[in-house]
Design a protein around this nucleic acid. Structure first.
Lengths: 225, 225
DNA sequence: TCAGCGATGGGACTTGGTCCCATCACTATA
DNA sequence: TATAGTGATGGGACCAAGTCCCATCGCTGA
């Protein structure tokens, strides 16, 4: 029988991905997944905490990110350290041979709210890991949170771009380019949108002496608690 | 009977929050929640899509954020528009009378992974809404994503700070201060980390001299296990 | 040959969640 | 006053996710 055949977990993942792609996540039963893998419901839950986890189980990313951030040179800025970690992910996790799998997985997750929810949680976990690693580098609290958030955004966008079949670049390249884009975009966030307005006129800077006062003129419009 | 008593949904929320706080989310049954509210399982699921949603149902935030961002003056930068939206949330959603509820809710959510997962998904939804609203302002794609992400981070931190019982400020103030802190921290992400060199002393303080600004207040550490 | 061990099978059980229909209270209209 | 309509509720059957416990299988080593 199927008993004692190796790679039970991998077989379950493959079976699940196939079935999810065929008939959708919610129209697929754990028992069906297990049967296609030549196993049973019991064994499924022995390998994965729940039905969603079958697409998120092999998750060494957190460790890779932490190690990558910590291993970055002392002179690296917080976002440099994040870039260093993204490189590690490109070498260890998102290798070229996994691109197709990544694309299928991404499509399945995008099609189901329950899976998107799990993905969101995993994202928070990765962000938390990066915050922790950055703090250990001596980066101040808030800067760690912001850098980790930008890192998570970069990771998400880079994964989108990399798993696109028309893209032939390695993940490391994609990620670095993406991080550059994010940094550029970040600089735009505190600048006026309209390209031809003077970005930092006298009035603007004087009206913006400290955090949060830029829109002090907009507040107090209506006060009815 | 309890039938036809008004505010069924509110009673369910109150009952759920009480029970979750008493014995924990996973040790509480939907039937128990319904019974404490004088209702039944059927009615519970008529008001809320699932068990988690009872703590996330009253969710007008997305609309408030979108409207606030769109209503911001044309001259506002992306993050100014976000600030404008956060102000609206302070007036419409996170009113002072809801602080205690917010604190209890936050504690319950923090104690349970399933609820944290839902919270993460809701956060993604808010971010998506902000991205959309910013795009409608003409903000470029990537800048929208970054600004929305920073806005979501600001909202999360501001909610943490505001729901703290020792905090007496209104949400709008807290959010404004938080956004300033986030912007400041954002600038550090591409700068060298070393803590005892320039940024802290001269350059830092002279660039942001606001009296009640930045890190002088609310030194609360945020922990991520 | 046998004992130990880890992975699997299997079934009972609880709970979240869906579905459908009966029931109740209120309202409008004749 | 009677009656039909409407919307919210109760109730139970039903399915799938997830837990628990124990039996069973195949391998390994003595």
């Amino acid at each position: 029988m199927a008993r004692w055949q190796p790679n039970a977990a991998e077989r379950l993942v493959a079976a699940a991905l196939d079935l999810f792609a065929e008939r959708g996540y919610e129209n697929t039963t754990v028992i069906e997944i297990a049967e296609r893998a030549g196993l049973t419901k019991s064994t499924f839950f022995r390998h994965f905490a729940d039905k969603r986890e079958v697409l998120f189980g092999a998750d060494a990313m957190s460790g890779l990110l932490v190690d990558g951030i910590i291993a970055a040179p002392d002179t690296a800025t917080p976002l440099d350290a994040v870039a260093h970690a993204l490189d590690a992910i490109g070498r260890e996790a998102f290798t070229p041979d996994r691109r197709e799998f990544g694309a299928r997985r991404r499509a399945v997750i995008a099609a189901n709210p329950e899976l998107r929810e799990r993905e969101a949680l995993k994202g928070r976990g990765l962000t938390a890991s990066m915050i922790d690693a950055l703090r250990r580098r001596g980066v101040p609290d808030l800067a760690s949170r912001v850098a980790a958030e930008l890192g998570a955004l970069t990771l998400a966008i880079a994964y989108e771009r990399w798993s696109d079949p028309t893209n032939g670049d390695e993940f490391g390249e994609v990620a670095r380019r993406t991080l550059g884009d994010v940094q550029t975009a970040s600089a735009l966030c505190s600048r006026s949108t309209t390209p031809f307005t003077p970005p930092r006129s006298a009035e603007w800077t004087s009206a913006h002496p400290g955090p949060g006062s830029a829109f002090s003129r907009h507040r107090r419009e209506s006060h009815h608690p």
